[in-house]
Design a protein around this nucleic acid. Structure first.
Lengths: 118, 118
DNA sequence: CCACTATATAACAATATGGTTATGAATAAG
DNA sequence: CTTATTCATAACCATATTGTTATATAGTGG
């Protein structure tokens, strides 16, 4: 069974977008409400084009949407994308717990007279 | 207020580690129990050194621990690191909800005769 | 049309990432 | 000691990421 590399592009993009503290800070800021690119850029010691691209990364990951408002391009949190990663986290957690539950069962079923490994 | 880039190295590493489908698949596999590097590598169409480095990334992120077992280096899921990202996700979600709750309150408080922004 | 503001894009450089092959080191076993 | 197995590391290459500066584009207002 050979696994394919492009299994989940969406998760790739979301996790990758979150793997940068500047972008996480931008998301945090957006929890206070929509903001234009300039306002978003202000707190950071970084050029405007750099922030522009960070926002594009967030947009491509589906974490942020934008709409024009006069001369501004307002950024808005799109928390749906964040919801995408929770099922994955839960799957891991569930499988993990399940595995150890099963192990517990096995251990419980073993009489103390015998010992297994793992 | 200038934000510093190295705010949370730990989250950087965890999200970054999760941003690769091969590494996510390795974590999935490990929910079935500990495995050696060779066994982990088997399903993937990739060289052993490549897998070795993926595992190291997971280890550096705190998602996997290892211990020798004879000639094997057994990999074990360390789900604690995954727990680290949940508070962050919740913070975003909470602030987001809070924001809109506050907005709702503001909107509710406004008599239809007057309008304010945000 | 002109000028101003907000933002995007292009071109570039430095560094990071992810893969490969070749090889080294540690343990187990004959 | 020798050999086989498991795994790590080194050297290398291609591509991606992230920042910079310079410039282009799009609305807004006079």
């Amino acid at each position: 069974m050979v696994m394919n590399k492009s299994s989940d592009l969406s998760l790739d993009r979301i996790f990758s977008a979150l793997a940068d503290s500047t972008r996480r800070a931008i998301l945090m800021k957006l929890t206070n409400g929509d903001e234009g690119v300039m306002d978003l850029a202000a707190p950071f010691d970084m050029s405007q084009p750099a922030i522009s691209r960070h926002i594009k990364v967030l947009e491509n990951a589906g974490l942020v949407t934008r709409h024009r408002q006069g001369t501004h391009r307002m950024c808005r949190l799109a928390p749906d994308a964040l919801d995408e990663i929770e099922p994955w986290l839960n799957m891991i957690a569930d499988r993990y717990r399940n595995k150890y539950d099963r192990l517990d069962t096995v251990l419980a079923a073993m009489t103390p007279t015998k010992q297994g490994d793992e």
